[in-house]
């Protein structure tokens, strides 16, 4: 039996499209959009630790290792949260929920990425950076996803520590240790997480209620959450100027931190006063920009 040329071409195209779709699903498991912000904090921490421009290869391998660590954590999260994800509009199209990737494969993929991250970071920079990458993964999966997310309204406060590890990875990769400044960077991301995440939670409160996840707005309402967004934003501004208080950053960073933080407080205040969905959206989107710009300002100040 022979196959005519157009049929063979169509079959080949379908195979390529199929492979492409599978590849895209596995990339989706890593949540690349979330990781891009985490990598900004890693990269900035590298510039700050170096007090200049670090070696290009070190940057490249640290970024790859950082991506693998965070991607591994996210892929495992697709496995652990598959029951919750199915009940939420924001996540019900995820590959595991839709059955395009089996839960076990997502778990295996996540573990493989985690191991790969440790090897990449350990061999390209040092094992402290590798340990920080793995610590972030373990906190995200073990403490946040499996434990606190389903049991307490403080889930994202403590779980926020997971997202604060990327600057430690970057710092350790360059300096080989973790100084006070590195821990201040950790603290900035840690205290940024509650107002950032609660602003998002206000937007998808019903999703969390449906999934029975005790997020602050779905348990105690919007007004309580709006007040907490404001309070934690004010506290975060105080933490963001600690590099200057410690004598580790200069006036340019101080001005940037005050202006960026002031805008954040302005939005949080409006969210608390107006209580609108629009302001929750504005506050959430600004929080993303805020963290990126704050770390860029720190890196520029240090360079």
């Amino acid at each position: 039996m022979t196959t005519d040329a157009p049929t063979a071409a169509r079959a080949s195209r379908a195979e390529v499209t199929g492979l492409g779709a599978i590849f895209r699903d596995y990339v989706k498991l890593t949540k690349p959009r979330v990781i891009s912000l985490l990598l900004v904090t890693t990269l900035a921490a590298m510039f700050i630790a170096e007090r200049g421009v670090p070696d290009g290869w070190l940057i490249l391998w640290t970024m790859i290792g950082g991506y693998l660590a965070a991607g591994g954590a996210h892929a495992i999260n697709h496995f652990t949260d598959r029951d919750i994800d199915g009940a939420m509009g924001r996540t019900d199209a995820r590959p595991v929920v839709q059955g395009r990737i089996t839960p076990v494969r997502a778990l295996a993929f996540g573990i493989a990425l985690g191991i790969a991250s440790a090897l990449v970071l350990g061999l390209s920079s040092n094992w402290l950076a590798a340990a920080m990458g793995l610590a972030g993964l373990i906190v995200y999966v073990g403490i946040y996803s499996l434990w606190l997310k389903r049991t307490t309204i403080h889930n994202i406060v403590i779980g926020g520590a997971a997202g604060a590890f990327p600057p430690l990875v970057g710092w350790a990769a360059v300096a080989g240790d973790l100084s006070l400044y590195a821990w201040i960077l950790f603290a900035i991301v840690f205290y940024w997480t509650p107002p950032h995440f609660w602003a998002l939670a206000l937007l998808i409160k019903d999703d969390y209620t449906r999934a029975d996840v005790p997020m602050l707005p779905s348990v105690h309402g919007e007004q309580v959450t709006q007040l907490q967004v404001l309070l934690w934003t004010v506290a975060m501004l105080g933490v963001s100027v600690l590099p200057c208080a410690a004598g580790l950053a200069g006036w340019p960073y101080f001005v940037a931190a005050m202006v960026l933080g002031g805008i954040f407080i302005h939005f949080a205040l409006r969210l608390w006063r107006e209580g609108t969905r629009r302001m929750a959206k504005v506050t959430f989107h600004y929080s993303l920009l805020y963290l990126a710009l704050l770390f860029v300002a720190m890196a520029v100040d240090a360079a």
């Binding site: 004010v234 506290a235 105080g238 208080a245 101080f254």
Partner: peptide
Amino acid sequence: LRMIALLVAAITVIPTAFAI
């Protein structure tokens, strides 16, 4: 700079921590 930054941090962090 250190003094001003520390003051800003103290003024924002301490009362807010108690309010939280």
